[in-house]
Every structure is written in structure tokens, then in C-alpha cells.
Amino acid sequence: MHPAFSVIFLTTLIGAGQGLFLALFTGQLYSTIHLVEEQPGSFYAVGSALSLLLLIAGLGASFFHLGRPERAWRAAAMWRTSWLSREVIVLPAMMGIVFFYGLFHWAGWTEPFIVFGDGALPVDTTFVLGLLGVIVALALFVSTGMIYASVKFLEEWHSPYTVVNFMFLGTASGFMLAAAYSAWLGNNLVGFFGTWAVIATLLGLGTRTASLFRNASLKHQSTLQTAIGIRHRSIEQKSQGFSASSFNTREFFHHQSPATLKLVRNAFLVLVFPVPIALILLAYLLESPTLPIAAFALQYLGLLAERWYFFAEAEHPQNLYYQQIS
């Protein structure tokens, strides 16, 4: 597939946004049960604003993908069948929740209305919003992932890995961002978020490499033989039927050399996984306030490459029909 920057930014930005939200709420959860130090409301408010910003930026990027952005509202219509439609519904829901989550924290509307287990678990509105947010974030990860995973003949994508990769990598970058945010603020959650970021990154490493291995040995079901319905060992296209490009030659192919592909793959394998982990570890050891920021920045850069590769790697069967000009 042709890696469109709009979609690359959309998925990575909202992934980080969702992840950051998850991180914030994890922080809140831990602090509620006193496992980590309590943070002021502004920590959550600013964090949510950051998350919201990422979600908005992602949404903004997605508009560049649309031919007719002014009609984007129509995209909510087919939620019964279309994962894209579902994403279009869930994303604003997510944004709403993040907004209110941040607002409530900001305004300090955090009076618990119910307390469980002897004061161990005070539940306030932000907590409910947070829980809801987790569910919606997961739903958004699933929707986004399923947009790709549900297209069964895009076999590189058509696997649970696509969804979990989106989830783990988004989560990883979100926690990484939370660590960076904490480092920037100078609070003592860097280690907490950093540890979770490393865990999510390692999970992501597991599922992403698994998907790479899977795809490397993937045997495509469609061949020139099934594409034109002729059984013969040697079939070659001599003419695609037109001598310049077309939508079908532009949209479904990256037009890059295999070497470039490999380079990008290696780049993301380095930038998304070992580098940020190492930087976080180093930050932990050196108690550096800047290294976590670098860790996030490099991981995000790596994720851009990862997403680029995700598209480029997918072989659309339609390409069987568009190979040769003559």
C-alpha cells in the first residue's frame, strides 16, 4: 500500500493520545490506592490537554486523507458495518471523555461520591470518566486496528497482531510521553510511567516482531493465476492497459526499492524498541530530566517509520493487475 502521511499521523498521534490518557488514568488509579504519590489536579488537566491535543492533531491529519472533508460528518452513518465509521464515532467520544476528565481535574470536581472498601477506593467523577475512557480507548484501538485488520485480502494486516500492535505501541508511546511529561514537570512519576512504558514497549516488541515474522513467511492467497483465472506456471502481465499512472498504481504501491523498505524497517526496530528502553533506563540511572523526553521523541519518530512500513509492507492483491506498461 501507499503509505499516506495523513493516516500515518492519524494512527500514531491518536495512539499516543490514547496511551497518554491510559497512563494518566493508571497514575490516578495507583495514587488513589496510594501506590504512587498523589498529583495535583493540574497534572491531570495538563496531561489530558496534551492527550486531547494529540487526538485533535490525529483527527486533523485524518482530514487530509479525505477527498471531501466537509462531508466528514457523514462518516458516522454506517457504524453497523464499517470499522471506519465506528472509529469516526469512537474518536470524538474519546476526545469528549478526555476533555471532561481533564476539566474535572482542573476544576477540582473530585469529591468522591462513593467509597469502596473502607476508604481504600474512593470513587469520584474523574474516576468514572477514567474508567469509561479506558474502555473507549480500547474500543478506539480496536476500531482503528480493525479498519486495517478487517480487510481480509490485505493479508499482512488481516491478523489480531494488527490490533494488538496498535494497542501496545500506542500505549507504549503514551506512557513514554507520560514519563517525559513527568520528567519535564520534575515529579517523581518518571520511573513509574517509564517502567510501564518499557513493559508496553516490550509487549509491542513481542507482537510487532511476531507480526513481522508472520508476514515474512506469509504466502499470499491471490496469485496471477487466481487473478485472471488461468492455471499455468508462467504468466506475466505485458500491459496493464494504459501507459502512465492511475489511481490504482498510486494508491496501492509504495514505489520504493526493497532496500528502502528494509532500511525503514531496521530504523523502526531500533527507534521504537531498544533506543527508548535504553534511554529510560539511562534516565533512571542518571536521573536525567531530558532523556525521557528524548526517549519519547525518538520512539514517536520510530513509530512514524513503523506505520510507514506497516503500509508499505502490505501487498494489495489488486497490484497483481497493475504491473507492466507497454
Binding site: H65, L66, G67, R68, P69, R71, S222, E251, H316
Partner: peptide, 26 residues
């Protein structure tokens, strides 16, 4: 009139027969 030009349908066609009108973006 309803199409937003998201191209998703073209991804979902294995036969490569849909074409986005690059001017009208549908």
C-alpha cells in the same frame, strides 16, 4: 453526493477496479 473520498472501499476491493476522481475527490 455522500462519498467523502476516504478511499476505504478501494482498499476493500481486491480487484483494483475503483478509481478516485482526483479532481472531484469522490
Amino acid at each position: 453526493d455522500k462519498c467523502i473520498g476516504c478511499k476505504y472501499c478501494s482498499w476493500a476491493c481486491p480487484y483494483g477496479v475503483r478509481e478516485l476522481d482526483e479532481q472531484q475527490k469522490v
